[in-house]
Amino acid sequence: MTAAATKDRMEIRVLRSEKELVTLAAELEGIKVSRFVWDYAIKRARKIVARAQRITTTEEGYRQILDALENPPEPNTELKNAMSQYLSNKAK
């Protein structure tokens, strides 16, 4: 952990029976309850974020994407104007 890293605190309310179950599971794994809960939460969060950021399409959509990449259309006037504006703003 770097010197600039900070730690925040999180608190949750749970049913006693659920806390006992998680506590037992953590003991069986030989780790603290907070580490047990946090490890699972981080793994689950990474999966959820990765799934949300993944782009999915149909087979036909995939073919259309590949075709557009291999055979891009000629730039229209609006695209040319946007590119000119971008380049002039970037040069400033």
Rank of each mutant, 00 (worst) to 15 (best):
L69W: 02
Q53S: 11
E18Y: 00
R63I: 09
Y40S: 14
K47C: 14
E60P: 02
K92H: 13
T56Q: 07
K32W: 12
A3Y: 12
E11M: 03
D39E: 12
T23I: 10
S34N: 11
I31G: 04
R44W: 13
T23E: 12
F36W: 15
I31H: 06
I12W: 03
V22L: 09
A5Y: 04
D67S: 13
F36D: 11
N81K: 07
R35H: 09
A82D: 09
E74V: 08
M83V: 10
E78C: 05
K47G: 08
A3S: 03
F36T: 07
K19R: 08
L15W: 03
I65P: 00
L21T: 10
A3M: 08
V14L: 05
T6E: 02
N71R: 02
E74S: 13
V14K: 14
L69P: 00
S34L: 01
N76Y: 13
R44E: 15
Y40L: 11
T23N: 15
R13Q: 05
I31Y: 11
N81H: 09
V49G: 01
T58P: 02
E74P: 07
Y86A: 10
M10C: 01
K47Q: 14
L21C: 15
N81Q: 09
K80M: 14
S84T: 14
P73D: 01
R46I: 08
D67C: 08
V49T: 05
E60T: 04
E78K: 08
R63M: 14
N76A: 10
L15D: 10
L79M: 07
I42R: 08
K19W: 00
A26D: 02
Y86W: 12
A41R: 12
E59Q: 09
E29G: 06
I55E: 11
K90T: 14
D67Y: 02
K7A: 10
K32A: 12
K92N: 15
I55Y: 04
